[in-house]
């Protein structure tokens, strides 16, 4: 089964660099502006785009993303509009577009129905912060049926056994949580991140991307040295908040300067 996310990461790897993954919450500050910001991301160096569904109880998110998604909900965002955002970006760019969502909105729509509509919109798959493979039987079936990527998270606290199970269940890439905490910019990348990536590679993951707390080109450079992709969220949301689409474009351009692998040739088969 071809994976849109894997293809995007492999394309970056072929260019001797890590992939850049940018996160934007759908409907913040509006559906149209999310689409415009997504296109700006893709045009300025992002290889994959992660569109978050605003949710009433985002337990893995820090204050910046909470504020953005709360505002989107207050303005009347509906879950079905995420498909408009995905289609709006995939129709204009080559970036792989994933949806990041807490699980209940998917349950409410119906897992199969959600997957079908995401595939129709040209989406690559789902990142699921509160769905572990142990509970994912329905999603495994739906993602197989519609050819979608399923990106599960691994954390510094994951045991070897759980790491193996999660790597086995994932398709596209594995999302390595860099730190024990929630989303939000941090001044430095946790040393735990490198260990998590190494553990995921040891469990057989070919593509591991690191997220949580990454906000500038220096941090991107540090992670690009050992992971296949770097995920930036909060910093981009703050850019949308403070400077709109133009600020997203400028930040993306800057972040992408950190992607090149400095030492030696690209890892092959990692």
């Amino acid at each position: 089964m071809t994976s849109k996310s894997a293809a995007a990461i492999d394309k970056a790897r072929a260019q001797g660099r890590a992939a850049l993954i940018g996160y934007l919450p759908a409907g913040y500050p509006s559906v149209e502006e999310t689409i415009a910001a997504g296109i700006a991301l893709a045009e300025n160096g992002a290889d994959l785009i992660e569109i978050g569904i605003p949710y009433s109880d985002p337990v893995m998110d820090g204050q910046v993303i909470q504020a953005a998604t709360t505002e989107a909900l207050a303005k009347g965002f509906h879950v079905r509009q995420v498909f408009d955002v995905v289609a709006g970006i995939t129709s204009k760019t080559d970036a792989a577009v994933l949806v990041m969502t807490y699980w209940n909105p998917v349950v409410r729509m119906g897992v199969d129905e959600f997957a079908r509509r995401l595939a129709d919109a040209g989406g690559a798959g789902l990142i699921t912060p509160d769905l572990i493979p142990d509970e994912a039987a329905e999603w495994m079936a739906a993602s197989d049926k519609y050819g979608l990527d399923r990106v599960f998270l691994v954390a510094p606290s994951s045991t070897t056994e759980r790491m193996q199970r999660t790597v086995n269940a994932s398709r596209g890439f594995v999302y390595a949580v860099s730190i024990m905490g929630v989303t939000g910019a941090r001044s430095s990348v946790s040393s735990a991140a490198k260990d998590v990536v190494a553990a995921a590679h040891a469990a057989g993951a070919e593509r591991v991307c690191v997220g949580l707390g990454v906000s500038n080109a220096d941090q991107v450079r540090e992670i690009a040295a050992y992971a296949e992709g770097v995920i930036v969220g909060t910093a981009l949301v703050a850019a949308v908040r403070d400077g709109g689409v133009d600020a997203v474009a400028a930040l993306t351009k800057d972040l992408s300067t950190g992607l090149a692998r400095e030492a030696g040739p690209a890892k092959d088969g990692a």
Binding site: P129, D130, S157, S158, V177
Partner: peptide, 9 residues
């Protein structure tokens, strides 16, 4: 257990 992986351990 509909929980983040970080808390499973």
């Amino acid at each position: 257990r509909w929980m983040p992986e970080s808390l499973i351990a």
